[in-house]
Simulated assay, not measured.
Amino acid sequence: MTSEVLLYINNNLDSKITLERLSEITGYSPFHLQRKLSADLGMSLGKYIQEQRLHTAAYFLALTKLPLDEIKYLVGFDDNSSFGRAFKKLYAVTPMQYRKSKRIQQEFPLRTFRYISTNGVLCKEQPQIARVFAYRGDYFSSSIYAIWKEVAAYIEAINKTPQDFEHYAILHECPHLTDNRESRYDAAIVPKGFKLPAAPYLQARILEGRYVRYNFCSKVQDYEAVSAEVNNVLVQQKNIEHRHGVSYFKFDSMPDPENPDNLFINWYLPVA
């Protein structure tokens, strides 16, 4: 029972987590559940949730490029002041001091290396024209990021920078269904505010139709476990019907082929 509750908490840090909701999940009364969890955790449930939010924030600050304004929402805070006060109370420094200082990060080592939000957001994106770079490989291996070397060379050749583009992976298969380890994978870039020369065989329309979007951030070695969790949640959604089609990773920054871990990813899965 405790592990089930902790999984729910860790997958819903961007939302309000109530004792009543946890009670619904477990079937225990709120009173009994709170006593049981406090005994198992060695602290109050509220304190545990707060610390998980802040430990996850520290993970984002140390290992991602996400802006502070976005991090606070991802871990369930509504404003900078309450987030800053809570973070400093636990870590003895401000969030920005923690991000900037490797020494401080060593003094307060990270306690989490994975983030998933299973609060799916239904959306219909505006289709965009992307420049694509075709590849095949194992979605769950860092070797698949080798294609981004080609992307980086192309961007440099046209005198642009990675910041001039949005960065996507187009996932043409679901290894959980096909059991294929070698799957089609396209790296894709969308220019921000300008057009690239037309190249019919090297471009594609992406994000057409309706999607449900989940967020996650982890090491590549954890992608298989993360995707299994997300797919399990999607299957249980009674109001969402998965449809055939490609899915997309939208990265917070261009992947580094040498170190692709801990990219913040919006995962778009096609739905009817």
Rank of each mutant, 00 (worst) to 15 (best):
K72W: 13
Q97F: 04
Y48H: 12
R181I: 14
Y73G: 13
K238E: 08
V220H: 00
E241N: 06
L196F: 03
E258Q: 06
E24H: 11
I104C: 08
K89H: 07
P30W: 11
R21H: 11
S81F: 11
A57E: 13
T26C: 13
E224I: 01
A62K: 11
S117P: 11
Y185T: 08
A169P: 01
D69M: 06
F113E: 11
P95M: 12
S38H: 02
Y98K: 02
T2I: 14
V75C: 12
Q50L: 15
K16P: 06
M43D: 09
D179I: 05
K192D: 07
V190S: 07
R99P: 07
I189G: 02
L22N: 04
T161M: 07
D179P: 00
P30D: 09
T56C: 14
I158T: 04
R21F: 03
V246F: 04
D222E: 11
R136V: 09
L54V: 14
D138W: 00
Y223P: 00
L207S: 03
R205Y: 04
Y8E: 00
G76S: 11
M43Q: 14
K89V: 02
L177V: 14
T26N: 11
F77K: 04
V121H: 05
H32Y: 12
R53H: 09
P260G: 01
F113I: 11
Y48L: 01
K195A: 07
S143E: 13
E20G: 10
V212E: 01
Y135P: 00
A225D: 10
S183D: 06
L7A: 15
P127R: 02
A225F: 05
I158A: 03
S15N: 11
I170T: 00
L22C: 05
S218C: 15
P109M: 12
V233P: 02
P255Q: 04
W148D: 01
A86P: 06
Y211M: 07
L22P: 03
Y139H: 04
E24P: 02
V5R: 01
Q237V: 02
S253H: 15
H55R: 15
P257K: 01
K89A: 13
T56W: 05
T112F: 13
T26D: 14
I49Y: 09
Q128R: 14
P30K: 09
E166N: 10
S142T: 02
T26P: 12
F60I: 06
A187S: 10
W148I: 01
A188L: 10
S218Y: 03
A152S: 13
K149R: 11
R103N: 07
